[in-house]
Design a protein around this nucleic acid. Sequence first.
DNA 1: CTTACTTACCAAAGCGTTTTGGGTTATCAT
DNA 2: ATGATAACCCAAAACGCTTTGGTAAGTAAG
Lengths: 338, 338
Amino acid sequence: MDLKALAAHLNLSATTVSRALNGYSDVSAKTRQRVVEAAQALGYQPNPVARSLAMGRANAIGIVYPLEADDVADPRFLQVVSGLTEGLMEVNMDLLLASATHKGELDTYDRLVHGRRVDAFIVARTLCQDERIDYLQQAGVPFLAYGRSADCQAYPWFDFDNEAGSVLAVARLAGLGHRHIGYIHASLHYNFAHQRHAGFLRGMAEAGLPVASPWLLQAGLARRSGYQAMIGLLDQPQRPSAVIVDNNLAGVGAVRALLDRGIVMGRDISVIVYDGIPPDTLLTQHITSVVQPTQHSTGKHMATLMSRLLAGGHPLSELQMLCQPELQAGDSDGPAPG
Amino acid sequence: MDLKALAAHLNLSATTVSRALNGYSDVSAKTRQRVVEAAQALGYQPNPVARSLAMGRANAIGIVYPLEADDVADPRFLQVVSGLTEGLMEVNMDLLLASATHKGELDTYDRLVHGRRVDAFIVARTLCQDERIDYLQQAGVPFLAYGRSADCQAYPWFDFDNEAGSVLAVARLAGLGHRHIGYIHASLHYNFAHQRHAGFLRGMAEAGLPVASPWLLQAGLARRSGYQAMIGLLDQPQRPSAVIVDNNLAGVGAVRALLDRGIVMGRDISVIVYDGIPPDTLLTQHITSVVQPTQHSTGKHMATLMSRLLAGGHPLSELQMLCQPELQAGDSDGPAPG
DNA sequence: CTTACTTACCAAAGCGTTTTGGGTTATCAT
DNA sequence: ATGATAACCCAAAACGCTTTGGTAAGTAAG
C-alpha cells in the first residue's frame, strides 16, 4: 500500500494525500479527515526510505560503540542507548548503532554521515581533549555530545553539572564535621572525572578544608580498580574519615574493600559514591550518593536536543542542557569522629 | 559527489559507472579500473538511501531492546549487539536499535519491517514459547533468532548446544566422584535454561546418578537471586557435594554466598558455572566453567547467517548454526569427599 | 558476405516519497 | 459583470541510485 494506491483509492492526487498527511494548510479539513481515515483503515505507512531520499534526511542518528576490550558491556553506554532509543522513538527517529575500534571511529563517522545514512551523531564518553569532537566540528557533521569536552564548548551537548555534584558531596561531609576527606576518581582524561575533581577541590576550598594529595587516588572505571584504591587509602598511616568515589563502578569495589576489612560505613568511615551503587551488586547498605536524572529523562532530553539540532535555526543556548544532580542520603555516612 | 557527477567526469553513463562499481561483467576491465580509481580519487560514496530505494533493500537489520526495568543494562544483550555490529560491518549492513516495552515489541517489528527500514530482525533472549517468533513467522518477516524456541524450529537461528554443555559439566563432576549434584537454574521459560536443564537431567541419567528435587533450585537472572538460591541449598539438611549454576549472573551470587559462609570451592564443594564468572566481579578464584565461543565469533556467525538469509535461496540447514560449548577447567571443583 | 554471437556501453524507466509551481473554482468587494 | 483574493487541488520534477531492454561495434562461423 503506497501513496499512489491510497490516492487512487480516494480519487485524489498523490500530492494532496501527501500534504494532507503532513499537515499542510492547503488541504480542506474534510479532505484531510477522509485521507487520514483511509490511511488508518488501509494501514498505509509511508516508506521511510523514499521519504529520506526526497527530503534529504535519514531520520536516524548514529552512535558508535567502542570495540576496545575493556569497554565491553559497559553499562553506562547501554544506559545512554536505552534512554535514547526511547526518546528518539517519540520524534520518529531511529538509532543506528555502529561499532568501531578507537582507530576506526572517525572513519565510521565519515562513512555514515557522508553516506547520508544518519543525520547526526551522538558522541558518548567524552574526553577532555576529544579528537572526535574536533573532527566532527571541523567536518561540519552535526552531532550532540553526551558530556562536554574541556576546552571548546561551542557545540550542542547534554551534560550533568558534575562540578556542582562534587561540591554537594563535600558540603555534606563538611557539614557532618569531616575535615579529612579522601577522593577516588577515574582517569582525568574523562571530562566527567575532571569536572568532578574540580568540584571536589572547589568544595574543599569553600569549606576551608585542606586537600591531602595522598588521599587523592586514581582508579579505573572498574570494580577491581576501586577496590585497590580503597585498600591503598586504608593502608596509609593517616586515614581520612570520609571518602568520595567519583563513579559507581569503582564505588562498588571501594565498598567491597571496606566490607572485607570489617570497616563499617557510617560509623567507622563515611562514604559517598557518585550515581549510587547499582542494584544487584550484593551490597546491602544504602550508600549516600550524588544522583543524576534517570536515563529515561536523559534520553528524552537528548532526543529533544537532537530534533532541535536537526530542525536548525536554534541558538546554541537551546542546544545545550545542563542537568543538576542531587544528593540522596543513605546510611553510609555519619558524623566525624571526635 | 554523486553518481551522475562521477559519470560526467569520466565521460561515461551513470549506468556504466554503477555497473562497474557493482562488479557486473558487462564492463571492460580497463573501464572498470578507470571508474574505480576515479571513485577513489574523488571520494565518491554511493548514497545508501537511494540505493535502498532502488533495490528495495534497507541493508540494515533491526534488533529491539526491551525496556522492562529489570533488564536494564543487561550485559548479555550488549554482548550480542557488540558482536553483531562488528560482524555486520563486514557485510555492509547496519544495525538499527529500537526499544520497546514487551507489549509494544510486536508493533515495533511491524513498523520497522513494514516501513522497509530494516530487512530482517534479530530476536534475542528467546523463550520456549515465543510469541515474537510466532508473529514474525506468520507475518512473513525475515528474522534470525538468537537461540531456538522449544517447539517449532523451522526458521533460521543461531544457538549454542546448551544441552551438551550441561552434559559436559555433569560428566566432569561425575568423573570426580560426585554423586550428589545440585543445580541452580534460571526460569525455564528461557529456552537456554530449559535446554541446559534438560542436559543436566540427561547427564545425570547417563552417569547413573539420582536427581534430588530439593537440589534443583530456580533463580532469576540476577546475582542476588543466585545468592539466595545457594544459601537455600546450603541450609538444607543434606547438602550436595557439587553444584552447577546455569548462568553467570546467578553464578556470581552463588559464589559470593559460598565465600560469605566460608565454604571453600574445590575443597568443601565443587562448583561449575555456565559462561564463567565475568572479570571485574572481585571474585578471584578460577571457576570451572562451560564456555561458549566468544561474542566476536558469535557476531560474525550471525552476520553470515543474516546475509545468507537475505540473499535467499539457501536451504534452512544453512541458516541454522549450533555452536559447541567447551569445558574450561578452573580450581573451583575437586574430587568428591569420601 | 552474410548470419550469429559476444562485448561494451547507454537511455530511460523505475523505486515511493516531497516539493515546486501552477491551475481551477468559489467568494467577495467594487 | 469584473478583477482580486483565497481556498483547494494537482501534474511533473526531483531525490540518487539500480535495472531493464536495448544498440552498435567487433568477431567467428558458415
